[in-house]
Amino acid sequence: MRNFPYGPVVVRVVETEASKLDGTAEFDPLAVRLAEGDPQAPGSLVKRHYAELYRYAFSVLREERAAEDAVQDAFERAFSALGRYSERRLRAMRLRPWMYRITLNVARNRLRQRREVPLEEISAVDSAGHDEQREGVMDALGALGKLPERQRVAVTLRYLQDLPYAEICSVTGWPEGSAKTLVRRGLMRLRKIMAIEDTRGDRR
């Protein structure tokens, strides 16, 4: 389990047609490869984002198979939408935040769909590798899950996914100030939740 390998994915291209078109000068070389028909590009997109999107989906769904299914679904939706884009639009895509947006929606919908099933049962189902480390992960995600939706999303994107604020805003559509406020409040709340769980843990 190493930190996910996310390299720099945006390069600065000055004075191209599309940059003048929409006022942004940031280009994702992978979006260009997709637009130009590089048959390896779809695989590269999967390789580049699978692990981080899986981590996000897992943090919401807290179950391996459910997280895998959600990410698969997200990629299928993504390719199906991108497939219909014009080359020019594709070229200008910021793929990372866009992939996140789809994954956020898919994970949220899937969580809603299974509201009836208590989370404890779900975690019990795949408790095959029930070691201390895993328990720690599940506790942390459990605490995250107690945050109000927007705070949970903000804190998760910032510290579990390590997204910079600019990308968090691009994913969520929030102004940067709101994103920072949500992260700060979320962290404070998380700290309280952890303190309460510490006392419970002591009594145990």
């Binding site: 692990a51 981590r55 943090s59 804190v155 510290y159 579990l160 700290r191 952890m194």
Partner: peptide
């Protein structure tokens, strides 16, 4: 006050990886 949750989240992030790789 918020350092602990941040550390915990970063530690958690490092431990979540797809079981079968990508």
């Amino acid at each position: 006050s918020v350092e602990r949750p941040i550390l915990l989240l970063r530690e958690t992030a490092a431990r979540i990886a797809p079981v079968r790789g990508t």
